[in-house]
């Protein structure tokens, strides 16, 4: 992980609904091409929506090649422009990331595929079935990206 991402992650250890947290995840991915090169290139635009009483936090992630090249907060009214959108409550996302931190990777019903297939806490939605299918086409890459929270998040919890 780059010094930059460590710094950012330290500053935002508990906040997953921030651009900084996802920037740290992107840094973790981009700093470890060996982990992603075995999976091959991926091309997708994904929006993650974290819903809370205050507001909906929407983050657009653009994956290109073996990198996550864009991490941009977007307005709720443009999320349909992405290939697919993952919508859930902030508490559901927290539970998913907690599982990753606790186990070193997502396990059981806390993988992003399982959560969205059940669709009770996090939903997979999109305006085009071909875009939605990209969730399946690049699923291992997306899961590996999210599993990066072990480093980008958990290591920042050290005193």
């Amino acid at each position: 992980m780059s010094p930059y991402s460590l710094e950012v992650a330290h500053a935002n250890a508990a906040a997953i609904d921030t651009v900084a947290f996802f920037a740290a995840l992107a840094d973790e991915m981009n700093a470890n091409p060996d982990r992603f090169s075995v999976l091959g290139e991926a091309e997708m635009d994904a929006v993650l929506v974290m819903q809370s009483d205050d507001h909906d936090f929407c983050i657009n992630l653009r994956f290109e090649g073996m990198r996550c090249d864009e991490v941009v907060e977007v307005l709720a009214d443009v999320v349909h422009l992405a290939d697919f959108c993952l919508e859930g409550s902030l508490s559901a996302w927290r539970a998913m990331f907690s599982d990753i931190v606790e186990n070193g990777r997502a396990t059981g019903m806390q993988t992003i595929n399982a959560l969205t297939l059940l669709g009770e806490e996090i939903k997979l939605v999109g305006s085009d079935p071909m875009g939605i299918d990209k969730f399946s086409r690049f699923n291992q890459t997306l899961q590996e990206f999210l599993d990066g929270a072990v480093v980008a998040f958990a290591s920042t919890m050290k005193p």
Partner: peptide
Amino acid sequence: RMGEMISPTDVEKRMFRMAMQDEARHVA
């Protein structure tokens, strides 16, 4: 996708995820 969700260990989870990626290309 179901197989991944109900997989008892990470062995099966990864197996289904990798196969899922291929299958989705064929569907596309």
